[in-house]
Simulated assay, not measured.
Amino acid sequence: MMPNLDYIPLFLLVFVRLTSFFVSAPLWMERQIPAPFKWGSAFFISILVVGLMEVPQGLELNSNYLLLIMKEVIVGLSMGFFAAILFYAVELAGSFIDLQSGFAMASMFNPQSSIQEPITGRFYYILTIVFFLSINGHHILIQGVMASFQWIPIDSWLPSDASSNLVILALDSIKNMFWLAFLIAAPMLGSIFLVDIALGILAKTAPQMNLFVIGIPVKMMMHYIVIYITLPAFFYVLGRLVNVMVQSFEHILQILGS
């Protein structure tokens, strides 16, 4: 039985959107994930999606088809970027903490971004991945990108106000990222601030003491104690971050939907 060649243009557009999404979405965007796994996942999910869709009328391999491919790339990358805000906020919170606790001098190589990152940021990042997988966050992402084919049909164009609305959504998401990062780092920053006040008072009352030698171990000890105490609150904030991610998904589908 010969395959229906009319589905090839439709399959290619679905495949481009899913591949763009998997390249920029959390978990799949990691460099440790082999590239064949990324496009392989996109390929087999595309087969399932195309099997549930009808071939749009007038979908041909012409100049308009190239514009549709560019549209699918924009849609896939946009959804992946806004979903990754969750992980960016956690890493930013770790950077705030290390800057105050003295761990900013020590760093780890992040193979994802090919740069040196603070230790606490990487630790929180790994905890976030474990938490995200434990609540089946990867299923939420797949369901979101599958729902995008209903909100944003393959053969439709983006609305005329999509670019301005995307900028507004991006600014709002970045604002939430900084706010949630500060919320995660607030207990640690407050504790380190109190330690600095105590060391300042001690420097006035006992100037003969070498506070530079004492201050670093005290901050390091406080760093680990506060992290241990605030882990339940950290996972609570992660739950809030997942809700923000889902809301961003809904907003971007409304913006890009026609």
Rank of each mutant, 00 (worst) to 15 (best):
L238A: 02
F131T: 04
M222C: 12
L202M: 12
L202A: 10
M188T: 06
V130M: 11
L171E: 08
N136L: 00
L99N: 13
A106L: 10
L171A: 13
G58Q: 11
G58V: 11
V16D: 05
L27I: 08
E117D: 03
L13Y: 03
A206P: 05
V244H: 11
E54I: 00
M1W: 06
M146A: 08
P187E: 05
S20W: 04
S148F: 09
F182W: 12
G200Q: 01
S24M: 14
L211E: 00
L66W: 09
D155I: 12
S113F: 14
N64L: 11
L211G: 01
D161R: 03
I225W: 10
D196T: 08
M222T: 13
L158F: 07
L92D: 05
S20Q: 08
V73K: 01
F132S: 10
W157D: 14
A89H: 06
A84K: 15
D161L: 06
N243W: 09
R240T: 14
I45S: 11
W179N: 11
I115K: 03
A35C: 04
L180D: 14
F15M: 06
E54Q: 06
L61G: 00
H139C: 05
A42G: 14
I197Y: 03
N136C: 01
L66K: 06
V75T: 13
M1Y: 05
A162N: 01
S107Y: 01
L5W: 11
I85A: 15
S24R: 08
P153D: 00
L141R: 01
G76V: 09
N4E: 12
A89R: 02
I154V: 13
Y125P: 00
L169N: 10
I214H: 01
Y7T: 11
V14Y: 03
W28H: 07
V49C: 04
V49M: 09
W157M: 14
W157I: 12
S63H: 06
M79Y: 06
L180S: 12
L211K: 02
E117K: 10
S173C: 04
V244Y: 15
T128D: 12
I85T: 15
S41N: 10
F234P: 07
L18Q: 09
V244I: 11
F109Q: 07
L92N: 08
L166F: 15
Q57M: 13
L199C: 11
P3F: 10
W179V: 13
S114T: 08
